[in-house]
Design a protein around this nucleic acid. Structure first.
Length: 211
DNA sequence: ATTTTCAAT
């Protein structure tokens, strides 16, 4: 029974290695996405689903998540019985890397057609965001315009993930060197990236991209 | 001071 349960949970070492918010994340050639899906079924009732995904070759983990979305969120598209109203979902995910430019565009496009879906993204590290004019930076701004809340993971988020997604047995979450400093530094960086974001709206942004 | 990145071998 325990082994079966463990298979849906992340091994400790894997979680630590991939979610560590170190400055130079050498060898993190994989991306993990831990998710919580909440479905509002009535005024005060909810269902809850959680799990994690890893990218496959040729498929970034965000796109993989979209593939599973239909199974995770029945009724999201309102294609149930006729007249049935669309259900509302709220998704929070915790990703070891922030999305690449292409995934951000695809996500923003998708979400613009899904008003009944709220997405919050927490990321441990920023993916290719060093250059001032990087496409990844632009992508993050696009996501923000699409209503996605993007946040750098802090101690409480790592702790929550450890409690929720990791096969932790009895062991407590151990803070690594500079977790806090790195999180603060990345949060400042993300803040600067998202700053010049207020002016144009999503439709203009899509037009600019020829979509 | 400098280092990396949903690989490519």
């Amino acid at each position: 029974m325990i082994t079966k349960l463990d298979s849906v949970l992340l091994p400790q070492k894997k979680f630590i290695f991939h979610y560590k918010n170190v400055r130079w994340a050498k060898g993190r050639h994989e991306t993990y996405l831990c998710f919580v899906v909440k479905r509002r079924v009535g005024p005060d009732s909810m269902t809850f689903d959680f799990g994690h995904l890893r990218n496959r070759t040729g498929c970034h983990v965000e796109m993989l998540f979209l593939r599973y979305l239909g199974a995770l969120c029945p009724g999201l598209w309102g294609n149930g019985i006729a007249g049935e109203r669309r259900l509302s979902y709220s998704i929070t995910w915790f990703c070891s890397w922030s999305p690449c430019a292409n995934c951000s565009i695809k996500l923003a496009q998708f979400l613009s057609q899904m008003p009944n879906l709220r997405l919050r993204i927490f990321v441990s590290r920023l993916y290719f965001c060093d250059m001032e004019d990087s496409q990844e930076r632009e992508g993050l701004r696009l996501l923000k315009k699409a209503g996605v809340q993007i946040t750098i993971m802090s101690y409480k988020d790592f702790f929550y993930c450890w409690q929720t997604f990791v096969a932790k047995r009895q062991s407590r979450f151990k803070v690594w060197d500079e977790l806090h400093q790195n999180s603060v530094r990345l949060a400042r960086k993300l803040h600067r990236i998202l700053q010049p974001c207020e002016t144009e709206d999503l439709r203009d942004a899509f037009k600019l991209l020829g979509l």
